[in-house]
Structure formats: structure tokens, C-alpha cells
Design a protein around this nucleic acid. Structure first.
Lengths: 229, 229
DNA sequence: GTCTATACCACGATAGAC
DNA sequence: GTCTATCGTGGTATAGAC
């Protein structure tokens, strides 16, 4: 089989089976908590297959994130560009920018069968991973989309000091990450109905309202951040 | 030595040394990533000491959380009760309730030498832990304080539907947890100055402004949540 | 009671036969 | 690509020293 033909074939079957199994098990037991023996047996592959296909457990982890996160962020950027074209010259409103960013995550949360929901929760956990390589990988994969959204917010909120915007983006990102990743820690106490958690439309409304308000919160000096037209 | 005399002595030295070492190493390498061999050698104790004093690694993890979280939540409840007494009959404002809740976390963030800052970051990570026992432990330790604060918010915001309040408390909690736990993932991109991150007073202002705005965000139906007197 | 030495089995990684 | 053997290291249990 030539290299060209092989490239046209769907990714090697075992490779994808391993990725699928890894995604699920990493969510259930964490990275360190998932043994390669369990993983490969779930994927119907040999113990040594991971090492053959990915090189190491760490490289497998990276592949799991890249497979979903790269297209996800490309989508986010496309969504933002669509928005900017539509508002012809003027800057899109903060609310629209927020919603554009949320959309990709929420679409994934809705995809339970394809494993998207599982991945989103895995992703949310990755931001606070102890492993430095994993965190910087995530940061690196997010960087291009992040830059674009930061620039969009700067245009939409020219009067908000840059440093304040940095913090508020940090807060917004945290809210999103935690909301999607946290399963039951505080949820049980707060009494959220589990079935609501995956209603993407409702969640978008709730998150967008909260985040927009936080982003536009009055500054301590008394002045209020003005909404862009 | 009688049981009474022993109770008066400071906790066994090795026990505390193990707790201190565990707190630091769990933060640096995660729970699964921290080997008992490294941990005990850092604590200057024998490998078997953990098993003797705590019973297992999981039990050690629990002890690490209990040592800090129990007094922390007691402080939170005391702060809220002080606030409710001070407002004599009327409900405290949402802003004051938020600040009362934040205070304990921010005080710990300020305590770098005593290991408090380290613990807060460890705590923030625990909410998204894969291990179910750890998550439910955290939930359980938080529950009493959470109930009290939820009741306080309900009194302060009688017109906000209960379900909406649940979600907004969830969002608020997420923002706090993530802000304190995430070190550099998105931070590098967002460009926060590291030295600012531990200025407790500044952080309280920023967090309180963001969270209060989010909590009081207008509902989708158009009505705005009214601030309590 | 407090702590140590040591033995036990499971894990991740790898090399080499097939 | 797969399989097996093997190595160093992990958490845990226990017997016995102090």
C-alpha cells in the first residue's frame, strides 16, 4: 500500500479506538489513574500498541486533546469572523462575542453519544492539571482563538482598562470551565437539576447573562463600563 | 502517658510533617502523581508511616483537606452570622454576602509561607477531581457553609427564582475556584501580571465586582433583579 | 504506641521475536 | 502491527524494633 493510499484511508482503526477509549477513561479516572493495561484492553488492542502508535502515554494525552480542540477553536475563530463581517465596520456587542465563544463548547456538551460531552468535561479539568506539559499544551492550543477574542473585546469595550479586561476574561473563562467540568461537587448542594445541565440552549442563556453582566460590571471608581453600540 | 496528656500535646510531629509535605506535593504533582516514597522522604519519615498514621493514601488526602477546610468553613459561617447580626432584622446585601464568602479564601491566598496559598490552589483543583470519593468529600465538607450562604442569598434576593439562584451560585463558585486554582493555562494568554494575583485586597475588589454583577444580572424575560435594601 | 525494614503485587515502558 | 518477557517503580500490609 502506497503512502498516498494509506493517507486517504480513515485513521488506523486501532489508533482511533485507543483515542476513544482514552478520552473516556481519562475522564473517569484521570490521566495518572488510567492504566495502559485497562485502556488497551478496552480498546481491544495490545498493551504495547499505545507505545507503538503514539510513543508514550503523554503523547497519547496530547493526541486526545488535539483531535477535538483544534477543530473546536477553528470553529470559534470562524464564528467570530462571521460576526465581525455581519456588523460591517462597527464592533460586535460583548454579548454576541460571548455567545460566539460559548457556542462551540455548548455544541459539544450536547453531543453525548459522540463523546463530546465527555471531552468537554475532560477539557475543563485540564486547566488545573498538575502536569505542567499538559497545561501548557492546552494554553498553546487555545492561544490563537484567545488572541482573537481578546482583540474583539478590546474593540467592543474601548473604555475598559486593558488590565481589567484581562482579569474579567480570566473570570469568564473560569466560570465556563468550571460549569462544564464540575459534575457534582457543589451541584448537589446547590440543587441543580441534572437534566438541565445538558440543555445547551438554556445553558447558553444562563451563562451568557451571567458572563455579560460580569464583563460589564461597574468599576470600583464609580464609572460604569458602557455597552458598545 | 495518659490519653488526656497526649491530647494536650501538639499533634504528633511526624503526622504534621507528613500533612505539610503532602499538601505541597499534591499541589505540585497531583494525588496519583505523588508517590508515597517521595512524600515520606520529604517529610523525613519512613515509607510505612503514612499507613500507620492515616491508614492509606486516600485517608491521607482526606486528612489534608479536613485540616484546613473545616476551620475555613467555620470562619465563613461566623462571618455570615456577624453580618446578619449587624444588619439587625433586614437581610445583608448580596455584595456583603459575597465578600463574606470570599474573605476566607483570600486570607488563605495571602498566607504564602504557612502553605495556605498552596492549599487554596489544591482545593480549587479538587472540585474537578476524577476520584469520586474526593469530590464527595469536598462537597460534604462545604455543605454546611453552603446551605447558610444559599439561605442568605435567598433572603437578599427574594424575587430571583430559586433555580436561577442555584445556577448563579454555581457560576460564582466556579469563578472563584478557577481563579484561585488556575495558575498559567490561560493566564499567560490573557496577560495577567503574576504579582497581582496574590494581592488579596485587589483581588477581592475585582472578584466581588464581577460576581455581584453576575448574580444580579437581568433575567431573560426582561425584568431586572432588584438589589435588596 | 511510634516507627522501621521488608515483602508483595500491579503499573508504565521497552526491547526483541514473530 | 502484535505478542511476550522484563525492568524499575508505585501503593500497601505486616512483623518486629524501639
Amino acid at each position: 500500500m502506497t503512502a498516498r493510499l494509506r493517507a486517504l484511508k480513515p485513521q488506523h482503526e486501532t489508533r482511533t479506538r485507543i483515542l476513544d477509549a482514552a478520552e473516556e477513561l481519562f475522564m473517569q479516572h484521570g490521566f495518572e489513574g488510567t492504566s495502559m493495561r485497562l485502556l488497551t484492553s478496552k480498546a481491544g488492542a495490545n498493551l504495547a500498541a499505545v507505545n507503538y502508535h503514539f510513543g508514550s502515554k503523554d503523547a497519547l494525552i496530547e493526541a486526545v486533546f488535539r483531535r477535538r480542540l483544534d477543530p473546536m477553536n477553528a470553529e470559534r475563530i470562524a464564528e467570530l469572523e462571521r460576526l465581525e463581517k455581519a456588523s460591517a465596520g462597527g464592533a460586535p456587542t460583548p454579548e454576541r462575542i460571548i455567545r460566539a465563544f460559548l457556542r462551540a463548547s455548548l455544541a459539544m456538551i450536547g453531543d453525548a453519544r459522540g463523546g463530546g460531552r465527555n471531552f468537554i468535561r475532560l477539557l475543563g479539568r485540564a486547566y488545573t492539571e498538575p502536569s505542567k506539559p499538559i497545561r501548557s499544551l492546552i494554553g498553546q492550543l487555545y492561544a490563537p482563538a484567545m488572541e482573537r477574542y481578546k482583540a474583539a473585546f478590546e474593540r467592543a469595550l474601548p473604555e475598559l482598562p486593558r488590565e481589567e479586561l484581562n482579569w474579567r476574561m480570566h473570570f469568564m473563562f473560569g466560570t465556563l470551565a468550571y460549569t462544564l467540568a464540575a459534575t457534582d461537587t457543589v451541584q448537589l448542594i446547590a440543587g441543580c437539576k441534572p437534566e438541565d445541565r445538558y440543555d445547551a440552549k438554556l445553558l447558553e442563556e444562563r451563562l451568557a447573562a451571567f458572563l455579560e453582566a460580569g464583563l460589564l460590571a461597574p468599576l470600583r471608581c464609580g464609572s460604569t463600563v458602557k455597552k458598545a453600540a
